[in-house]
Write a protein that binds this DNA or RNA. Structure first.
Lengths: 358, 358
DNA sequence: CTGAAAGCGCTTACAG
DNA sequence: CTGAAAGCGCTTACAG
């Protein structure tokens, strides 16, 4: 029972052929007669042959591994994305090495360097907002936003937003509050821009939470009850996470969703369907995005004339920007706009928006 | 400016020494005079030398890469864990290759095989509930639960539960509802067992959601309003995800948290602090768990006398079970038990538990 | 303290 | 259709 780790040569010896022939047979290069190839495959399987990735990598100069850099690995979307990318990579015979960058820019650069040192053939980067991917000496696909220069592939956040806006508009909402985090994010600007477009003639207010919290402190009230009192009948949040914050703040204030106000998110995170009411949201097609990103990197790897251009140490970021459609998921958190002013509150429309609202 | 990818030999040539000496100098094996070593390091840095992992791997038989298998990559805890493990591995010079197993048992085995084929030196597995890790021909550290045979390291879920139970008990809760998912999970049994222990003499009911949904359908009501009417003053959920479901169901029913009923979770997921009220929960020390898991795998890798025992193709699972303490995070979702029966409801204590409640 | 040499396992021109 | 040979880049005994 005691057998050594079998090498290519063992198969060759067992059959009395050369290692070259075994290699050719196994890689299906076709330079071997079908019968012999079949016998070789059989013997390899029988011996439990597992090719040495190190040997192959050293000879071919390819590691068969791609790096994945998530700006913020604690991003709730990470699981889905990592899963999708690992799947897409596995389909084409690649492995995925992860690198964490703590959401911090210098760490992102270090993470990229670490991956290079590990010999990755290319990488996929989901950068931190407003960050440039730089200094990678291998092909890099960037998943950010269609409006980001250097972006490789991304969800069509703008159209997704538009879909959400149309959904709300068709439910009769004429006064909508938008909840964003940071104006520095292309993704966020795309999303909210789309929502506005979809909302057409409806009245729109926007709150940027980062700004609000800079003044009123982390975790402060979003002033949602006041907004509802002011006539807002729907709240479109930049993400499910923000939508959740809004939802619980509303419920805590005794405001019913969707009867008094509708709420929407973005991302369709795992818990979006579990909460009460279920959250209406816009889902990214991560599988397609992953497929395109992987395909782009592989293309670049197999086109040395680009990456191999000597004279510059510059980036090899792949810039082509297919937009992958998003999918509207309607759940119970959205419904028809209430006809009357907020029932528990008489002072309607006579409140000013306040200095924090644009 | 046009320079080739520098190899070890270039440094050797540049200094007129042998590659062996360069290798020794760079690896700090000390067989080189300090002065020469210094010059070699300087030249290497200047030339931008990046060692070839393939060359090293082929020669040493070590890839410098560890595999990470998450039973369910869409598990909300995944980001934190992956981050912690990547960090711990990076500290000791290892990379992390991920493998997704879709939460399905055969896929888990395939994922493990794929990692082996990629030449990992060892792996960390967070298995699916009630699943055995099997057939890995390299050292495997398992992160599951201290009460699982073959477990390597885990959070002390039982003590964590106890801490939560004590917290509730000390707030005066005498009638508590426990919310679990599956009785097949060691982690869940540990957690709820601990909660019960911490609750001492309090009255305890348990609902297993999987069972409930099998009868009443996915996403059905948990019957929380009825429970509160029955006298329950606190609900301890098996996870933050379940706690969130409970919290929104309660809020939707107009039951105030924590005034009418307290709610606790487990895991301290990203959104636990963002919702209103913030969720009291029990946090895992993922960094410590990751450190221990990585250390265990490295130990096993460096002790070939175990892994090298011929005669069996058996597992190389590392069984030693340190329990890492959990940390109580108190937020606003827990408070003193209400003194009176549920204020909006007169029929107290005269409801039977129902067939779904143990 | 330093060097010459072998070899890890594979693939790829190149002959035959 | 098949084989002999070279070599990818490194490290490790082994000499000196």
């Amino acid at each position: 029972m005691s057998r050594q780790k079998p090498r290519l040569a063992r198969i060759a010896d067992a059959l009395g052929v050369s290692t070259a022939t075994v290699s050719n047979a196994l890689s299906g290069k076709g330079r071997v007669s079908p019968e012999l190839a079949e016998r070789i495959r059989a013997t390899a399987a029988e011996l439990g042959y597992v090719p040495s990735v190190a040997g192959r990598a050293l000879r071919t100069g390819r590691s068969g591994v791609l790096g994945l850099v998530l700006a913020d690995i604690s991003n709730p979307l990470f699981p889905k994305l990592a899963q999708a990318i690992e799947n897409s990579a596995a389909k084409v015979g690649y492995g995925i090495l992860i690198a964490d960058s703590h959401g911090d820019v210098t760490a992102q650069t270090q993470a990229i360097e670490r991956l290079i040192e590990r010999g990755v053939d290319g990488m996929i980067v989901v950068p931190r907002r407003g960050t440039w991917v730089t200094g990678a000496s291998c092909p890099v696909a960037v998943i950010d936003s269609p409006s980001t220069p250097g972006n490789t592939v991304a969800a069509d956040h703008w159209s997704g937003g538009q879909g959400l806006g149309l959904h709300l508009y068709s439910l009769g909402h004429k006064h909508v509050l938008l909840l964003g985090n940071s104006t520095a994010s292309n993704v966020q600007n795309d999303r909210l821009g789309g929502v506005k477009a979809g909302l057409g003639s409806a009245k729109v207010e926007t709150i940027w939470i980062e700004k609000l919290e800079a003044q009123s402190g982390q975790g402060c009230s979003l002033g949602l009850a006041e907004a509802v009192a002011r006539g807002v009948t729907a709240i479109a949040a930049i993400s499910d996470l923000v939508a959740l914050r809004a939802l619980t703040e509303l419920q805590r204030a005794g405001i019913a969703v969707p009867e008094d106000v509708s709420v929407t998110g973005f991302d369709d995170l795992i818990w979006s369907s579990v909460i009460t009411p279920g959250l209406t949201t816009m889902r990214m097609d991560v599988a397609t995005i992953a497929d395109i990103a992987i395909a782009a990197v592989l293309d670049a790897i197999n086109q040395p004339h680009v990456a191999g251009s000597r004279g510059t140490d510059g980036d090899t970021v792949i810039a082509s920007q297919p937009k992958v459609p998003m999918e509207l998921v309607v759940r119970q958190s959205t419904g028809p706009a209430r006809k009357s002013a907020y029932p528990n509150d008489n002072k309607t429309d006579n409140l000013t928006a306040g200095e924090l609202i644009q």
